[in-house]
Design a protein around this nucleic acid. Sequence first.
DNA 1: TTGGAAAGTCAACAAGGCTGACTTAAAATT
DNA 2: AATTTTAAGTCAGCCTTGTTGACTTTCCAA
Lengths: 170, 170
Amino acid sequence: MGQHGEVSRPGSESLLFLTDEQLKKGIEAMFFAYRGFTADPDRILENYSYGRAHHRALHFINRSPGTTVNNLLSILGVTKQSLNRVLRALIEDDLVESRVGRRDKRERHLHLTEKGSVLERDLSEAQRNRMRVAFRAAGPEAVSGFRQVLEAMMDAEMRRQYNRLKDAGT
Amino acid sequence: MGQHGEVSRPGSESLLFLTDEQLKKGIEAMFFAYRGFTADPDRILENYSYGRAHHRALHFINRSPGTTVNNLLSILGVTKQSLNRVLRALIEDDLVESRVGRRDKRERHLHLTEKGSVLERDLSEAQRNRMRVAFRAAGPEAVSGFRQVLEAMMDAEMRRQYNRLKDAGT
DNA sequence: TTGGAAAGTCAACAAGGCTGACTTAAAATT
DNA sequence: AATTTTAAGTCAGCCTTGTTGACTTTCCAA
């Protein structure tokens, strides 16, 4: 019941990696790894009145300086009201600057302030350290596979967003 | 500043996959992929008065039938009070059965009911389908790398939990 | 027989999602 | 020039899921 392709029939390549058991291991790997993925920044954030949502905003503003609110909204996949709460705090605390658009004055372009950059760097560094250790332990072949599978797991729309973020150095 | 190992010095193997840029791509891949990972079950759950927390409980009870509350607690990494709220709903709705321990009567052993199995299977199937498509598209080599990197990203304690879940068919 | 462990419960709170309704300013269209 | 649409922001209220802290009941084990 529910088992597909787990029998390596003579003549077919081994499809053992597609057994339900293997798929479940993949699911559990995602679950536990995501916890590790967020653990370090979360620990840093505890010292502030910020949470994971603030981290995400800082990350993507840093990644695409000058991005508009609407843009950020579609990357984060949350509602305007939800993002606004987070953004308001960051702007009030002088971590993020909101500049009126030059061409279109309805738009606001978001930038990190010096202070915002410092926190972003701090969070990012913690997260990159863990990623670096994992990448180094697994090796370049594994990293390539890691990214291939993750990309294939995204919705088409997310994959578009993902590929849009410039990847210098690839 | 903050750049490590991106220069492929003569004599060193290529460490290009450890540039900050590559690490950031990895971080973003995790972010977008996790959204995809949860999207399908979340959609199903919308028809019920359950959320992701209920899904996780169902998953791990299905995975380790007869597990105790304490056990589940340490796997899920939430507080007793938080889990209790979820578990109470599942038991009241007859999706989960809580049996008093035979050896140690303080313990409760958790099992899915017929009804619980049905929902679990539904959720699991949706999630496995996406995972299967991704695995198939990426191929067995990539899947191996995917799991290697994720395992390396876990905290030691989580990795222990992860490896404890039996992996028949590996 | 007593101390500690497992489970369960109540209350109160916070973060971060959501919907709906509405405003303001500016751009775009008619 | 008038109207419609878009971008941003706001208020209010709700839900889920996490947290602490305090306390009870049951029962195993020293």
